[in-house]
Amino acid sequence: MALNTEKNVYTVLFACIMVIVVGSLLAYLATGLKPRIEENERFEKQQNILYAMGVNENEGEGSVNFIPTTEVESVFTDYIKEQLVISGGEITTDDEAYLIDMKKQLDALKRGNPARLPVFIGEKDGKKYHIIPMHGKGLWDAIWGFVAVDEQLIVQGIYFDHKQETPGLGANIKMRYFMDDFIGEQILDGERYVGIAVVKGNNDPLNNIKDDNEVDALAGATITGNGVSAMIRESVNLYRNYFESIRSN
């Protein structure tokens, strides 16, 4: 090769060309795939919300099975009767409330700005479900989920997900055996909104006691577990006024 790759001019030129080529390649790819990715994310949110209220294709014990993406849109409109947005004490309806990014809303609240908090009201077999989103921090990055409660504020179903918790440890918060433990638990302790704590050694590994506001922790995932506890506690307190209103009805 006659190319003198040691020259500074060449180095700078090479760097520039590389940046342009790689940058445009990635930008082209990102724009091209964006509609498909957004659609996938929309379906996923619908699947998660439906999962929390028990509309899923789970069989016995085992793995998490959502409503398939091909059907989820129509199933979502069938089961979710109302989508509310709570903003500064006022409640309005919004059919795209499920697209609200909870992280942005929580950031807004932190800075003292008004936030838009979504609530989804689902109905299945004549029973009403109130589903709220949650957002918090795990060990490495964000964790989030949805919790469905009835009028007595007893958990009817829950769904957790995470960005990048450790596989085999913290990542197991999205496993059936962990999420199913929350069903039947109460988010109230007397009149206090304590949520549900993930605790180690609560002498109830099978989770038969449903009024202790506790579920058994995952071994090796203490910080993710603490993150889950904090997330549930903060989320139910955020929706306190709403919960009070459905309890008094």
Partner: peptide, 11 residues
């Protein structure tokens, strides 16, 4: 044969 030696790690 094209990568400049000085910035090869970044490349």
């Amino acid at each position: 044969n094209m990568i400049p030696n000085k910035i090869r790690i970044i490349v």
